[in-house]
């Protein structure tokens, strides 16, 4: 079962358009939405949440998102990078406010998370550091035990220690109940190598990739070859290439068959960042 089904999601702005994005977020899975700044990740998330008007269909928990919006949002936990309830409230106030929004609000869980994250209950949110603010947003998002988390850049601007703590929270959230899912947008792709099951890559408003993370990390490779070797490679067998001073770097999506076919053995394992760069900057 899919917790989110996005089909042909489109949105037009002056100078930018999101073009027929389609992907699913299966239950029990973490899907990472990646792309450069301005690629369309936040627009996709806003369109899924009906914060902006869009074309195409979005189904959440199998229900049409526009028709069943309020019902769906009861089981949704959302973290937005640049937006929150208010900066002039304390975590204590937020608890009292959120109780009225969610029947399933778990006060003990929320207070426990505040303690776990070392967040003072009586301090105004505006006086929190970015890391503290993000931890608070996450605590708020998961304290009503939602079935689905939608997170827009939850790790941006945070130091590696806090980022690792936050990723642990997400891991634990999924482990607690396998019907849960996470859709997470980020431009820090190293975070996704450890946590995501699928990668959806958007570039300039278009979907470039939608593959299991394991496939991306295991099957993709960067072959290093000479000009002569490169000239023998069939265009269909590589994704893109970069021309260096002494050699060619070629991104391939099936390194085992590539090795067999061309006998090139110097193949590095690329990071998601490398793959993203090849798609954006590489030549074809």
């Amino acid at each position: 079962m899919n917790n989110i089904e996005v089909k042909d999601l489109s949105k037009k702005y002056v100078g930018f358009s999101l073009d027929k994005i389609s992907f699913n977020v299966p239950s029990g899975m973490v899907v990472g939405l990646i792309g450069e700044n301005g690629a369309g990740k936040t627009t996709t998330i806003k369109a899924i949440l009906n914060i902006i008007n869009s074309e195409g269909t979005v189904k959440i928990f199998g229900k049409e998102s526009k028709t069943y919006e309020k019902e769906i949002k009861k089981d949704l936990g959302v973290v937005l990078d640049d937006s929150f309830l208010s900066t002039y409230l304390t975590p204590k106030h937020i608890n009292l406010v959120m109780k009225d929004f969610y029947q399933t609000w778990d006060e003990d869980k929320y207070n426990g998370l505040l303690k776990q994250f070392g967040l003072p209950a009586d301090k105004l949110v505006k006086d929190f550091s970015s890391g503290m603010k993000m931890k608070l947003k996450i605590a708020v998002a998961i304290s009503h035990n939602p079935k689905l988390l939608i997170l827009d850049e939850p790790t941006s601007g945070l130091d590696p220690v806090v980022r690792s703590e936050i990723l642990d929270i997400f891991r634990k959230y999924i482990e607690e109940d396998e019907s849960r899912s996470i859709l997470l947008s980020t431009h820090i792709t190293t975070d996704l190598e450890h946590i995501s099951d699928y990668i959806v890559f958007i570039d300039k408003g278009k979907m470039v990739l939608n593959v299991p993370t394991l496939e991306l990390l295991e099957d993709y490779g960067v072959a290093k070859c000479t000009k002569e070797e490169f000239s023998k490679i069939n265009e269909k067998d590589y994704v893109s290439y970069k021309k260096g001073k002494y050699q060619y770097e070629v991104l391939i999506n099936d390194k085992n068959s590539f090795k067999k076919k061309y006998g090139i053995t110097s193949i590095d394992k690329p990071s998601i960042d490398d793959i993203m760069l090849f798609y954006i900057k590489g030549e074809r």
Partner: peptide
């Protein structure tokens, strides 16, 4: 103005409220 400062309208639209 408080809502504008925290851009809270965007966040509120993610909550179960019409």
């Amino acid at each position: 103005s408080y809502d504008d400062m925290a851009k809270s309208n965007r966040y509120i639209l993610t909550l179960p409220v019409t």
